[in-house]
Design a protein around this nucleic acid. Structure first.
Length: 674
DNA sequence: CTCAGAGTAAACAGAA
DNA sequence: TTTCTGTTTACTCTGA
């Protein structure tokens, strides 16, 4: 006895504190966090710092080389002598681009993987994303910096070339000065942004490393150049000074500022680029265009500041910049707004990913023979579950692997799409109501396998049923309707990947439930003690809840006209169990069908109470199916499923909408009906 | 706010 | 003695 509790205690030590689902959860989180901090994130951060520095140096060097080259060319063209013959590198641009492409930024794929692994809490994800954004930004900065340098070089060369034409030179210089000032302003803004990120710990900077974002960049520049730059910004220097002294001091800013806001989407969108390349190039172009149209700024449009929630009117671009600096400087408010925006982007991104999957599934479905008429029926549209479940089920198979041991897709619930379901609905889970919301993410199983059972067997997702329900299910599923404790354990582990972990915790819970609920009767057997289910008792505990949630009932009733067989009690019970919400919102998994049977069991109780004769309407099952119209698979059930209780979907499916259920008809039906 | 249901942790006892 | 099984209590969280 002590063994279990001992282990449990240890492993769960802190679990009690926050009441999170379990110690495991905490452990997982801890592990994840650790993994993140020691694994990916650190690598990223470290690499970011290092690489950034190196890149800066490279960029600077390349820029200089370019300048030299250009100078040489110019000189050659103009017949001037080049002071130095430094022709080492005709192909220097290659290194630059290569450097720029350094994959410190987590690729979309990686990001997705992280998401799917559910290893990170939303907060962690956000932080990670922001870090990535910062890194991307940094890269973009560098890229732009180089670009600007090149351009500056060109201008300088032109000046030199046209040195005899003071007028032109002056003009160019003036232009440059203005441009630089603008750029610097933006740079400042960017700096503020990055600093705010740093301040919030969103952007990690290695202690030994120079500050990441801009400072390293700055350091990458020649200090004197930097100083010069700042002088230009703060003081009044002649354009000649600026240009002549700092060829390389041209700025990164324009692009920075312009790309900064856009970076979020770039980073967030897994399809935007595969390795960050795109994000690197895009800003480049943007920067150019900005040069031409300095007044285009993501945060500025139609004379209005587009900072979220601002909409301040700015006469012109300079005033906008002024406004930006003053009103949206680095402070708590801006920081918070930035976070919110990031979250918005993140959610949109997830939404997009989901929709893409859906699209893919749809296309696949249309291309492949569509032998699945059932998808159409969409029987019970409980709380818009159809939308979700359908989309989920149709999601392309490849999209989500059924890795047994890996945590399931962590897609945040928020991304559930346009459906009614929101994050909050996630928390309105059925029987196992609390703390598991994070677990109830949307593990999209392949359409082919739309078997809940299969899903739970492989995915470490906590089943949305109470221990009592599961225990009952296990017992009823057994040939003799009785199981030893150990057999119950085995059933749990066999049927649910989730219960392959934290044995101590859930086993204790199982024992606790067996003892606690009168519906579980211990019977002395020859071999020892076995547990049976007292249906009467089991059902006794149901009715109480049935009263609740009229809205759901209504919804159910209205949504499935063809589901007439379902009686009010059933509906009520379904509503009571929040099945729709639960399955769709929290689970988002269309493939829960089989498991639904477990739920159905619970429902049965209520059903039987009110409607003893309509057993064939298989009360329990319909709700479940209703929730998972997708199930409808014509594919034969998995062998394993057949044995499993989950697959037993009850008796008759007289109602048309339950066509898909036919597959299950042969299944052992009814153990629960007794 | 209260209450009930559920999950978790833990202590304890008895049996194998 | 250790491990498993079973009971019980306490606490927390959540939803009604």
């Amino acid at each position: 006895m002590m063994q279990e509790s001992g282990t449990e205690t240890k492993s769960n030590g802190s679990a009690i504190q926050n009441g999170s689902s379990s110690g495991n959860h905490l452990l997982e989180c801890g592990g994840l966090r650790e993994g993140r901090s020691n694994g990916e994130a650190p690598a990223t951060e470290l690499g970011a710092a290092d690489l950034a520095h190196v890149q800066q140096q490279q960029a600077l060097q390349v820029a200089r080389q370019l300048l030299q080259q250009q100078q040489q060319q110019q000189q050659q063209v103009s017949g001037l002598k080049s002071p130095k013959r430094n022709d080492k590198q005709p192909a220097l641009q290659v290194p630059v681009s290569v450097a720029m492409m350094t994959p410190q930024v987590i690729t979309p794929q990686q990001m997705q993987q992280i998401l799917q692994q559910q290893v990170l809490s939303p907060q962690q994800l956000q932080v990670l994303l922001q870090q990535q954004q910062a890194l991307m930004l940094q890269q973009q900065l560098q890229e732009f910096y180089k670009k600007q340098q090149e351009q500056l070089q060109l201008q300088l060369l032109q000046q030199q070339h046209a040195g005899k034409q003071p007028k032109e030179q002056q003009q160019v210089a003036t232009q440059q000065l203005a441009f630089q000032q603008q750029l610097l302003q933006m740079q400042q803004l960017q700096q503020q942004h990055l600093l705010s990120l740093q301040r919030q710990g969103l952007l990690t900077i290695q202690p030994g490393q120079p500050a990441l974002p801009l400072q390293p960049l700055a350091q990458g520049m020649i200090p004197t150049e930097l100083q010069q730059l700042w002088k230009e910004v703060t003081g009044v220097h002649t354009a000649e000074e600026a240009t002549s002294n700092n060829p390389s001091s041209l700025d990164l800013t324009t692009c920075v500022s312009s790309s900064a806001p856009a970076k979020a989407s770039l980073v967030m969108n897994p399809h935007a680029s595969t390795n960050g390349q795109l994000s690197v190039h895009t800003p480049k172009r943007e920067s150019l265009s900005h040069e031409e149209h300095p007044h285009s700024h993501p945060l500025y449009g139609h004379g209005v500041c587009k900072w979220p929630g601002c909409e301040a009117v700015c006469e012109d671009f300079p005033s906008f910049l002024k406004h930006l600096n003053s009103e949206h400087a680095l402070d708590d408010r801006s920081t918070a707004q930035c976070r919110v925006q990031m979250q918005v982007v993140q959610q949109l991104e997830l939404q997009l990913a989901k929709d893409k999957e859906r699209l893919q599934a749809m296309m696949t479905h249309l291309h492949v023979k569509s032998t699945e008429p059932k998808a159409a029926p969409q029987p019970l549209n409980l709380v818009s579950s159809v939308t979700l479940s359908k989309s989920a089920s149709e999601a392309s198979p490849q999209s989500l692997p059924h890795t047994p041991t890996t945590p399931t897709a962590p897609l945040t619930p928020v991304t559930q799409g346009p459906s009614v379901i929101t994050t909050t609905s996630m928390h309105t889970v059925g029987p196992i109501r609390r703390r598991y919301s994070d677990k109830y993410n949307v593990p999209i199983s392949s359409a082919d396998i739309a078997q809940n059972q299969e899903f739970y067997k492989n995915a470490e997702v906590r089943p949305p049923f109470t221990y009592a329900s599961l225990i009952r299910q296990a017992i009823l599923e057994s040939p003799e309707k009785q199981l030893t404790l150990n057999e119950i354990y085995n059933w749990f582990t066999r049927m649910f990947a989730y219960f392959r972990r934290n044995a101590a915790t859930w086993k204790n819970a199982v024992r606790h439930n067996l003892s606690l609920h009168k519906c579980f009767v211990r019977v002395e057997n020859v071999k020892g003690a076995v547990w049976t289910v007292d249906e009467v008792e089991f059902q006794k505990r149901r009715p109480q809840k049935i009263s609740g949630n009229p809205s759901l009932i209504k919804n159910m009733q209205s949504s499935h006209a063809y589901c007439t067989p379902l009686n009010a009690a059933l509906q009520a019970s379904m509503a009571e169990n929040s099945i729709p919400l639960y399955t769709t919102a929290s689970m988002g998994n269309p493939s829960l069908g089989n498991l639904a049977s477990a739920m159905r069991e619970e429902l049965n109780g209520a059903m039987e109470h009110t409607n003893s004769n309509e057993s064939d309407s298989s009360p329990g099952r319909s709700p479940l199916q209703a929730v998972h119209p997708v199930h409808v698979k014509e594919e034969p059930l998995d062998p394993e499923e057949a044995e499993g209780p989950l697959s037993l979907v009850t008796t008759a499916n007289h109602s048309p909408d339950f066509d898909h259920d036919r597959d299950y008809e042969d299944e052992p039906v009814n153990e629960d009906m007794e």
